[in-house]
Design a binder for these strands. Structure first.
Length: 863
DNA sequence: CCTCTGGAATGATCT
DNA sequence: AGAGATCATTCCAGA
């Protein structure tokens, strides 16, 4: 198939037959809705919701761009079949089968009751992906990075954002692309980079689940907010390939229990030849090596394609012979793409040829990622004004403020919300730390109601984008006061809430829960490069489109603090919220007060220092003053530093609740010029060290004692002056190996503003690095939310594990996580003055500047 | 009866 | 290869 031929799109399906044999070809198009779907077909529309006009002007476009061709061409004849053996089918779909852009049908699908779920028509002879198959655009929205475990180095070439940022004129090109998408059945990938732009032959998965009837909200089992997931058999795991299709081959001791992984056991090394078995009988997954670990270590671990323009922005990774993509894309696949690089976006359409070339006979389930699309930074200075017909994709960076308008999350959500599975009932709406619910407000505009969009985004250090494994879930009930509508935008479920002038343009978000999609299902999706394992943090994303005087729409976005969604992590991982002081005498002895969740007097606090090679130079448990601790705090006695030093030394400490339950390392500075003030019992006089002047000189046995090096300009602080370090919640975990999080240099530049002037910008003193924002303190956040002057904090490159020296086969998931956490840790020093959304939008930019900062002097490292 | 919660069992995956 | 640890998912029970 011509990769540039837009006349038809490939329908890439997994077909299963109940006898364990590959389905015969001829009737593969006979789509059979699951019985559950049939049963649901008669459900009435949600008139309540439909009666609410959408004030959101661009929803349709969103929907269209992302999922405009929702497979309505499929019929629903036949009966559900059990299926045991997968096969891959590729069919052509005539473009005229697409819903006409802008047609009422599309509008209905988009804006119909609760968004017109499009999932009702999938057939059981197709691979079922739970919920809306469009949650993540399967094909070209690899969403490589929502996973904490699938980092940039894994997926820089596979980012949806790659598509988003390849153009110089961000806004203009986006609009053009959106126009294109609207005008063409195939659309444009740019139309919805966030979800892979269901356009150019990449609605492969969408199509197979979608049916004309899918456009009827009545068919959507999820439309009914009161419907328990248990009542939605079509979403039951038992209808999923993950269990049913493999029962015969994989007897389980617990027949009707949870589904097994469709991929079988994940391997993290290539040792198991069966892991890549071409036989579906050996591996139900077309990509048996779907495990990122497996991918990392086996032959999919390929060097970055030469000429890939998207540099890995993290310097440490560049040294690695890292895979351009660690999941689902074999080297050969990449190779295929390389030659197609300049064929345009269409060249990334799935191609039958690829299947034919799959050496082991396993059909390629996942699309390759265009190598020339890379992680590019968003263009600073771009206007957040968009035409009504071309809203920005969900992963498009937007400011939270523009001109007089500001979208502000006045009450942040709690940092932990246990998401519910489809097999569970709702676990309620997201709550605020204060006990209520998050509150969002639009300042600077109150002329007419505007629609607020809410979706679940990622919480890693990459650009914000819709989360592959979590979706927002509309919560209803007596206690829910906020009316909202569910929609699908791109492949992401979105809640639309009205901000009304009579409500002061604010809304309490009491209608939004979080749904967890099963990892196996999402990972199976074509093009999905994220992994779900340990990827359990999300952020709640809010967007509004405010009518602008020039007729355009002003798009603003703000995001919440990260929210941990797993039961386990939420209950076990210590998450530091603050600690005090942030520095102290090398002699130790001071009390360090640490607060946070999952911290108790039984926790351990370990101070450590690592060398340039990542090896631990020093590690010491702090003595816990258990009598002073509480349920959410711990007080320890700071241990003395192990060496004498003439200049401040930055070390780290972490809180541990067990072997693999450690918080993210936080930095602590030992100051040599400390004198205990005679009049202060608990207080410690400290030299005033400008953070940037901490020279990190190598500890030396010959170094004069602190007393000797006191200079004349020593500044004394009372203990009360010691700043409290308040930590953004997302920065409180580290990989369990205990390797410290390197505190790399990180800088926030206010000049990267996308959205024009920001209010109240004020220089942030260097000491404000310690004045971190608490999630639960919006007031404080308001004060500190604006980035000040470029704030650079020296970090310790030596803390980076020397991953570059690791053999590829030695890379483990934890190594990956360590990289991730390291990155996150590197942000922590500067996040104090950056709102989460700002961080999202700009951190990537900052990463590019990090390498230069890395040359700054640090203790024990190269000068 | 339903929703929301917390807890935990169980199997998969990883170390 | 096997054991133990960790994680994801499902199930249960109570409010």
């Amino acid at each position: 198939m011509s990769t540039t031929n837009c006349a038809e799109e490939l329908d890439f399906r997994l077909i299963f037959e109940d006898d364990g044999r590959p389905a015969a070809g001829p009737d593969l198009d006979a789509r059979t809705p699951p019985s559950s779907t049939q049963a649901l077909a008669g459900q009435p529309l949600s008139h309540e919701l439909q009666s609410h006009p959408s004030y959101f002007p661009t929803t349709d476009s969103y929907q269209h761009v992302g999922c405009h061709s929702e497979g309505h061409h499929y019929s629903t004849k036949g009966n559900p079949r059990a299926f045991d053996c997968p096969s891959i089918q590729i069919t052509s779909i005539a473009p005229n089968n697409h819903v006409e852009p802008g047609s009422s049908q599309v509008v209905s699908a988009v804006g119909g009751a609760e968004g017109g779920y499009l999932e009702a028509s999938w057939s059981r002879d197709q691979l079922y992906l739970p919920l809306d198959p469009c949650y993540r655009d399967p094909a070209l929205c690899p969403s490589p990075c929502s996973s904490l475990s699938s980092r940039s180095w894994m997926s820089d070439l596979s980012s949806c954002e790659s598509f988003s940022h390849v153009y110089d004129d961000m806004e203009g090109e986006l609009r053009d692309a959106a126009r294109l998408a609207l005008g063409s059945p195939l659309g444009s990938p740019l139309g919805s980079p966030g979800c892979g732009g269901g356009a150019f032959g990449v609605e492969l998965w969408q199509q197979k689940y979608q049916h004309p009837s899918a456009f009827s909200p009545a068919l959507s089992p999820h439309q009914s907010p009161r419907q328990s997931p248990r009542q939605s058999p079509c979403h039951s795991p038992r209808t999923s390939v993950t269990e049913e299709s493999w029962l015969n081959r994989r007897p389980t001791s617990r027949p009707s229990s949870r589904p097994t992984s469709p991929c079988g056991k994940r391997r993290h090394s290539s040792a198991d030849p069966h892991a890549r078995s071409p036989s579906p009988h050996h591996s139900p997954s077309p990509t048996p090596g779907a495990s990122p670990r497996g991918s990392v270590t086996d032959d999919t671990w390929v060097g970055s394609p030469a000429g890939a323009p998207g540099p890995l922005l993290m310097s440490g990774y560049q040294e690695l012979d890292v895979p351009s993509k660690t999941r689902r894309t074999s080297g050969s696949q990449l190779g295929l793409l390389t030659g197609q690089g300049d064929a345009g976006l269409e060249s990334f359409q799935d191609s039958p040829r690829e299947d034919g070339q799959e050496k082991d006979g396993v059909a390629v389930l996942f699309l390759q990622v265009p190598s020339h699309f890379s992680w590019n930074k968003p263009k600073p200075g771009a206007s957040p004004l968009f035409r009504m017909s071309s809203p920005p994709p969900l992963d498009w960076p937007l400011p939270n403020q523009y001109d007089q308008c500001e979208l502000k999350l006045e009450v942040q959500p709690r940092s932990y919300h246990r998401a519910h599975y489809e097999t569970e009932g709702s676990r309620g709406s997201i709550k605020a730390a204060t006990g209520g619910h998050p509150v969002i407000k639009l300042n600077g505009y109150s002329e007419q109601p505007v629609s607020l969009l809410l979706f679940i985004g990622t919480a890693d250090d990459r650009y914000l984008r819709p989360h592959s494994f979590y979706q927002v879930h509309r919560v209803t009930g007596k206690t829910v006061t906020t009316i909202c509508q569910e929609k699908i935008m791109g492949c992401t479920k979105v809640l639309e809430i009205l901000l009304l002038p009579e409500n002061n343009m604010s809304a309490s978000i009491d209608c939004a829960g979080i749904l967890k999609l099963r990892n196996a299902d999402i990972e199976l999706k074509k093009g999905e490069t994220d992994i779900g394992r340990k990827n359990t943090r999300v952020r709640v994303v809010f967007r509004v489109a405010v009518p602008h005087p020039d007729g355009q729409m002003l798009w603003l976005q703000t995001v919440s603090v990260p929210v941990e969604c797993s039961q386990r992590s939420g209950q076990e991982l210590p998450q530091l919220e603050s600690f005090n002081p942030t520095s102290g005498s090398v002699d130790g002895g001071q009390e360090l007060f640490i607060t946070g969740s999952n911290i108790s007097a039984q926790s351990r606090v370990v101070f450590m220092e690592k060398g340039p090679d990542g090896r631990s130079l020093w590690e010491m448990d702090a003595r816990v003053l258990s009598e002073k601790g509480s349920e959410s705090s711990i007080v320890v006695e700071i241990p003395p530093y192990n060496k004498k030093t003439t200049c401040p030394v930055q070390v780290q400490f972490y809180v541990s609740n067990g072997k693999r339950r450690r918080s993210l390392a936080q930095s602590f500075t030992y100051l040599p010029g400390i004198r205990r003030h005679p009049s202060l019992a608990a207080g410690v006089k400290q030299e005033h060290w400008e953070p940037d002047l901490i020279s990190f000189c190598p500890p030396s046995a010959e170094a004069p004692s602190p007393d000797q090096v006191l200079s004349s300009d020593v500044v004394y602080y009372d203990s009360c002056d010691l700043p409290t370090f308040t930590i953004p919640p997302q920065m409180t975990t580290i990989p369990p190996q205990g390797s410290s999080v390197p505190l790399q240099s990180f800088a926030i530049s206010p000049n990267t503003s996308l959205g024009g002037p920001r209010r109240g910008q004020s220089p942030v003193s260097q000491s404000s690095r310690s004045a971190f924002v608490t999630a639960a303190d919006p007031q404080k956040e308001a004060v500190l939310s604006n980035p000040g002057p470029r704030l650079t904090i020296k970090k310790e490159p030596e803390d980076q594990p020397n991953l570059g020296s690791l053999g590829l086969h030695e890379i483990t998931l934890d190594d990956v996580n360590e990289i991730i956490d390291r990155d996150i840790g590197s942000l922590s020093g500067s996040a104090a003055t950056v709102q989460p959304d700002q961080l999202d939008q700009y951190h990537r930019y900052d990463w590019e500047h990090k390498s230069s900062d890395a040359a700054l002097p640090f203790c024990g490292g190269p000068q």
